[in-house]
Computed example of a mutant assay.
Amino acid sequence: MKVRKFAAIDIGSNAIRLLTHNVIEEEGKKTLFRKSALVRLPIRLGEDVFVNGRISDRNTDRLVNAMKAFQLLMKVHGVEKYMACATSAMREAANGEEVIAGIFDASGVNIEIIDGEKEASIIASTDLKNVIKKDENYLYIDVGGGSTEFTVFTEGEIKISQSFKIGTVRLLNDMVDEGLWKELELWLKNNVKGLANLSIIGSGGNINKLHKMSGRKLGDPLSYVWLKGQYHFLQSLTFEERVSELGLNPDRADVIIHATRIFINAAKWLGVKKIHVPKIGLSDGIIKTLYYTEN
């Protein structure tokens, strides 16, 4: 048996993450991927970029310090290979390339800015195949701070994928107009037309938190009815109550309502009753991409 260490760095619009995996290789057996550690830091790049068009000096300094810390943590874990991806906020920042160059000079961490299409393809390389049944159809929704990726699966394969600039941080800052919601609704209805046995697969920190709050076991889906009820419940609480009474982190307590809205809108428009929450996302996909690219 050989145990290898791989790491993924996900630089999103609402937070950044370092995920470390044990990759267990044994002759004659399927390679196993086991989550070893996860570090999440609430550096909200989206509030800089979506409002002012660039990453602030303060958040640039925080990013540099975070990457220095991640580099040390990867060294302690004995990580042999890593991949760092930046998504919506860094894509749109006027000084994104400059910030990434500065981070590399200061920490040695090389960051790749990926587009929505690559983001969706990386996510598709996760354990989604263990969730998806070939005789059913699925809409995979990955909600981020700056954008949301929508992918339609039929017969176990990707039919179509599209990224929309409807993210939790944009919604928090009232930066998504009704026209874009309508565009999303039309795209969804056009691309799932005629598909029977449709359900939603959700990913992202907010839907994972909602699933945990529901008390359901891992693998048990959320119902549209429960999610809609939870949406109204969350709306009835103040930000302070969501932090103190529900125990949500401050950087989760303000965006979770907006993430819930994205899921219930999609479910309502398409008449979907079930939302599966397998707790996988971009970081998991990066680990798989790293491993299978070299093998």
Rank of each mutant, 00 (worst) to 15 (best):
C85R: 13
F6D: 07
M83L: 14
I257P: 09
I122C: 09
E149P: 09
E97I: 12
D127E: 13
I132W: 02
I114R: 11
T151L: 13
L184C: 12
D220L: 04
L270P: 03
L186W: 00
I280N: 02
V255M: 02
H276Y: 14
R4S: 12
A93S: 10
D220V: 13
R54H: 05
K75N: 11
S36P: 02
N137E: 00
T151R: 11
I132T: 07
P42I: 00
W269S: 05
L73K: 08
D48P: 00
Y291N: 05
N197Y: 10
V131A: 01
L270Q: 04
T151N: 01
K193S: 13
V192C: 10
F70I: 04
F233D: 09
F104M: 10
E149Q: 13
I55Y: 02
K273Q: 14
E155C: 04
G78R: 05
L38C: 04
R216D: 07
M175N: 15
G194K: 05
K209Q: 14
G219R: 12
D105Y: 09
V143M: 09
D105S: 12
G102S: 13
I43E: 03
P42W: 00
L188P: 01
V176L: 03
S13D: 13
A106C: 01
V192S: 11
G194Y: 01
E97P: 01
L186M: 06
G205V: 05
A94S: 15
G205L: 02
G28L: 02
V272I: 15
G145K: 08
W269V: 03
F50Q: 01
A120R: 10
S56F: 07
L32C: 00
I114D: 06
S283H: 03
A124K: 10
Q71G: 03
I16S: 10
V225G: 02
R34Q: 14
D115M: 09
P42D: 01
S203W: 02
V79Q: 07
W181S: 03
N191K: 13
N14I: 10
F33H: 05
L72D: 07
K212A: 15
V3Y: 08
G108E: 11
G28A: 08
A89I: 13
G205F: 06
F104V: 06
G12D: 07
Q235T: 08
D284F: 01
F50C: 01
I114L: 04
V176I: 02
N197H: 14
A8N: 09
L237D: 07
N208A: 14
E112N: 12
I132M: 07
R91L: 14
H232G: 00
G108R: 10
M1F: 13
A66E: 09
G12E: 04
R54F: 00
E117Q: 15
V143Q: 15
A66M: 06
G271K: 07
L270C: 11
D48H: 01
R4Q: 13
N249W: 05
W181K: 02
L171D: 01
L184H: 05
K268N: 14
